[in-house]
Structure formats: C-alpha cells, structure tokens
C-alpha cells in the first residue's frame, strides 16, 4: 500500500512540475483567470460581472472564475488586484467606484496605480422625484429650490459615492443648495417614496423598476446625450445645465501587466460585451453596452477623474492619498 501511495504521490508532483513549466512557456491565457467583483453577490455588479466572465471564458478558452471580494466600496478588491502578480490572471471588475475610493482617500493610491483594460458598459445617473408631486420638470424643481434654498432633500447612496457626486453636480448646475441625505442603497428608494426626501440621485438600473411602475418620475439624467433605455427623458446637458457624469463598469489589471496580455484581455472583453446574452441583460436591466479599448478608456478615466476630483474638492471631500 505504502509503495503505491509513494508512486502516486511522486507522479502527481511530476505532473504538477511539468504543468508549471508548460505555463511559463505557453501563450496567455493558459490557466483560469480570477475575475474579482468588488461588490456582494446578487447586486448589479455581481450579476453583470458573472455573465461577462462566463462569456469571456468562451472566448479565451480558459475558465474566467468570478469571485466576490466585497467591502469598503470596492477598496478591498482594488487593493487585492493592485497587489496581485501582473500576469493577467487577476482582473478587477471596476466601476466608477475606482475614482471615488481613490479621491476620497480610502486607499493610499490613485486610480492610475492600476492598468485599465477597457470599459464595458455605462449607465446614467438619474434625478428622480415621487410621481404625482409638484415637480414635473427640472425647471419646476429649480424654481422651488431657489425659493427655499438649503431645504429640499436629495437622497444618495452614501457620502462620497458616485450618486453623491452626481447630486452635488446637479445642485451646482441648477445653482441652488440642497440637503444631501446619505440614505444608503437600501433606503434611497424607500426614502423617496415615504416622502422623507424630495428627490434622489440613483443609477438608472436602480430606479427603472419604480419608474416603470409609475411610482417615481425621472426628471433628468446625467449622460451627455439621449439614453437609449429612457429615450424621452432629457439629459441635463440638453436642458442647458452643465452636469455630466456616467457610471461605468470595466476591467483593470495590476500595473506592469504585459501589453500583449492587456490587449488580449481587452479584445475578449469587447467580444464578450457584445455577446447576445450580455446585450439581452443590458436591455432588460437598463445599462448601455459601449466597449472602449485600453487607450480610449485611459483618456475617459482621466477626464472623469478630473470631474470627480473637482466636485469632491468643492464639497470638501477630496483627501486623495496618492503619491504625487
């Protein structure tokens, strides 16, 4: 018995040794890729990320394993991936949170401490009020707000989150102070319905169900152009207000990942995003698939980062600990 065990054991070790030698020589990807989701199971980031990972597995020919590492608004995942081996086998499913956690100073680095593979999708943040209320347009809200400055309450997901940044942008654009109430993702919608807040800023995917049920009314959104999911809602820009910030999701890898690996990932990401399964989900949930390659995404991030930073500085939230 013991001999057999010894033989089996040594064979296993040999197989592993050979396997690892092979890995060094073979072309990327040769082993499963870790696809880290910064938010908990069941949420939007998770459902969308898992489907994308599945589609990417088909294209890359290796398992792309979705793993949730939730916590601290994404900081746990970003830190984990930033510190991982730069070999393209650890990928972060990023979002606008990569700009907020870095600028608010919860991690000791900036968004540029990682390499960004590309954008997959985006969705607008919407400004919504309760249906049947006194405001039917942004102009109504603006007029009322200017009459009673610093008294209307606008709910958001948490201080420093993208929705808070969006709410500040809206308030700046209409030129009137409001009370920002950080009700949280769970209570943001409930607060608007109960009348605790007068309006809210939410991702389109988080508001579309209630809007379709006519419980709330979306007055405007913060995308630049018309949004295909809600084509009849005017954007802030089209109403003449200067406020623009989208929520995006995309992929990031550790800095130092070889360019050909990043390119391959970016290519697979784009194809997976345009798979029919993913496009169907986009249609159903209310986000817009619009892949961006490495270079375009870096520029896009740079521009959005300036927006986020500027708003945070005005609001006194900016505390970036990134080394200059």
């Amino acid at each position: 018995m013991k001999k057999i065990r010894a033989v089996v054991l040594s064979l296993t070790i040999f197989t592993f040794l050979f396997a690892s030698i092979n890995l060094v020589q073979a072309a990327y990807p040769e082993k499963p890729i870790e696809f880290i989701i910064p938010f908990g199971a069941g949420g939007g980031a998770d459902i969308e990320g898992r489907l994308l990972a599945k589609e990417m597995s088909k294209i890359l020919g290796v398992p792309v394993v979705a793993i949730n590492k939730p916590g601290a608004g994404g900081a746990v995942t970003y830190t984990y991936v930033k510190n991982a081996k730069p070999d393209g086998y650890t990928v972060a499913w990023n979002s606008t949170s990569i700009l907020t956690v870095t600028n608010i100073g919860n991690v000791p680095y900036g968004h540029d401490a990682m390499t960004h593979v590309g954008r997959v999708e985006y969705q607008p943040m919407v400004f919504a009020v309760k249906s049947g209320g006194k405001w039917n347009s942004m102009k109504d809200f603006e007029a009322d707000c200017k009459k009673n400055p610093n008294s209307l309450k606008v709910g958001n997901s948490s201080i420093g989150s993208a929705t808070h940044i969006g709410a500040i942008a809206v308030a700046n654009a209409i030129g009137c102070d409001v009370i920002h109430v950080p009700l949280g993702i769970k209570r943001r919608n409930a607060g608007l319905l109960s009348g605790e807040t007068d309006a809210m800023i939410a991702p389109l995917t988080g508001a579309i169900k209630l809007a379709k049920a006519k419980k709330i009314m979306i007055l405007s959104h913060l995308s630049a152009g018309t949004n295909p999911v809600v084509p009849d809602v005017p954007s802030m820009k089209s109403l003449g207000y200067d406020a623009e910030l989208d929520l995006f999701r995309g992929l990031s890898v550790p800095k130092g990942t070889p360019a050909e690996v990043t390119a391959k990932l970016s290519d697979a990401m784009g194809k997976a995003a345009q798979s029919s399964a993913f496009m169907d989900m986009a249609k159903k949930n209310g986000f817009t698939v619009a892949p961006m390659d490495v270079a375009t995404f870096e520029d896009y991030l740079e521009r959005d980062n300036k927006v986020v930073k500027a708003i945070m500085e005005v609001a006194g939230l900016y505390q970036s600990k990134a080394k200059k």
Binding site: G71, A72, I104, N106, S158, I159, S161, P182
Partner: peptide, 22 residues
C-alpha cells in the same frame, strides 16, 4: 471598525484594506 457608514472614511483600520471592510 472599518468604513464609516456615512462618510465612508476609514476608522480603526491601521491602514489595512481587509480591516477597511470591517
């Protein structure tokens, strides 16, 4: 311990990302 639930700033984390999530 972890992220302040309202402001989102770090509390008692000693600079550790694991502690940040509470």
């Amino acid at each position: 311990v972890g992220q302040d639930p309202v402001m989102g700033t770090a509390r008692f984390t000693f600079g550790d990302a694991n502690m940040l999530s509470g």
